[in-house]
Computed example of a mutant assay.
Amino acid sequence: MQEANSHLLSAKNLDEGVVLLLDKPLTWTSFDVVRKVKNTLRVKKIGHAGTLDPLATGLLILCTGKKTKEIDQIQAQEKEYTGTIRLGETTPSFDLETAVDQTRPYKHLTEEQIQEATLPFVGRIEQTPPLFSAVKIDGKRAYELARQGQEAEIKSKTVEIKAFELTRIALPDIDFRVVCSKGTYIRSLARDLGEALGCGGHLTKLVRTRIGQYQLADAFSIAAIEALRPPRPEGAGPARPERRPEARAGLDFYAANHAAPAAPAAEDTPAD
């Protein structure tokens, strides 16, 4: 992690411009991370170079100051992801944001069949983004229409899959590593692989591990950023209450099925 380089995040350096690597927490939006860093480190100018879905974790690149001019250049670089696809079940969002809407048999599949099914997806392919995505349709985000139960047609686009490696097969789950071009939807890849196998599939885990030369292993955690919060200027008055990311619209199903366990009752708590 980049904690060893925390001395580089001085107010002067941030204002002049740095490329800041963050490990995005689960359920946070990319904007949540930008806002957190902006408010914590009091950065005047900041933006991110490539969105991650709320249910994805991993490398999110933030640029500050003059480095914001490099955002488009960084976004254009190839991406690397690891994750898990569950076969035999489909969801409308192609991930865990929505409930399973269909189940199909999968136990008859062999490892050889699954490995062979990945081959047509390597190279330049046509891919249709999920309806639950930020793609714009007539000026509206596709996910807004999807969450309202509206049907919409999303045009396919050409993307490049440079590597699609299955690292573990333990049906119904398969783990993978993908190297791809900008604009690739791994959720769509999960859906398409499931369709190619005739059993359906959806994404249950996604981690972005690399963008170009930038690695997740070098990223700051949110906790590390919080530890770098500068002291409030003398006479600035009391600090505003910390604003934590609220539950994301559209993640109600996920939240309900992944609720944190209840805290123990008072009588069960050991005395000091």
Rank of each mutant, 00 (worst) to 15 (best):
T57Y: 13
L193D: 12
H258S: 15
P264H: 12
D192T: 04
G83E: 07
L216V: 04
S156M: 07
P230Y: 15
I225V: 14
D23H: 13
Y185D: 05
E246A: 15
L26P: 07
T118H: 09
T209Y: 06
T27W: 12
F94N: 08
A99G: 03
D53F: 13
P270G: 15
S10E: 06
T184P: 10
F253Y: 15
Q115F: 05
E160W: 02
Q150A: 12
R42K: 14
E151Y: 06
T103H: 06
D268P: 08
T209V: 14
F220I: 00
A152D: 03
P245D: 11
I137C: 08
Q2P: 02
I174W: 08
V33D: 10
H258K: 13
V122L: 10
P238E: 13
T204D: 11
T57F: 14
Q150N: 11
Y143I: 10
E78H: 03
P105G: 07
A196Y: 01
R141M: 07
L60G: 06
V18K: 02
K44M: 09
A4D: 09
A170Y: 07
P92K: 04
R141G: 10
F94A: 07
N5C: 10
F31T: 04
P92Y: 03
L55V: 08
R177Y: 03
I71E: 01
P233H: 11
I161F: 12
R141E: 09
D173F: 11
G250L: 02
A247K: 13
D72T: 01
G17I: 00
A56L: 06
G65T: 03
A236P: 05
I74F: 00
I169S: 07
Q215M: 14
V43I: 15
Q102V: 01
P25C: 11
R191Y: 14
D138G: 06
A259W: 07
K205S: 09
Y214A: 02
I174L: 15
I74R: 00
T184V: 02
F94S: 08
E144M: 12
E97T: 02
P238W: 13
T40W: 04
Y214H: 14
M1W: 05
C63S: 07
P92M: 02
P105T: 04
G237C: 06
S30F: 00
P92A: 04
A256L: 09
L197P: 11
K182S: 08
R208H: 10
G65K: 13
P130C: 10
D53H: 13
E226P: 08
V135A: 14
L22A: 08
F31P: 02
A196L: 00
E151F: 05
D32Q: 10
E111G: 04
R86E: 09
Q113T: 06
L52R: 09
A265T: 04
F176I: 05
R229N: 06
I114Q: 03
L171S: 10
P25Q: 09
P105M: 02
P172W: 05
D101S: 07
T118N: 06
I61E: 00
E153I: 12
S6R: 12
V135D: 04
G65D: 03
Q213H: 12
Q102P: 01
Q215C: 14
T158W: 10
E116Q: 15
K205P: 01
R248P: 14
V37T: 12
S188C: 05
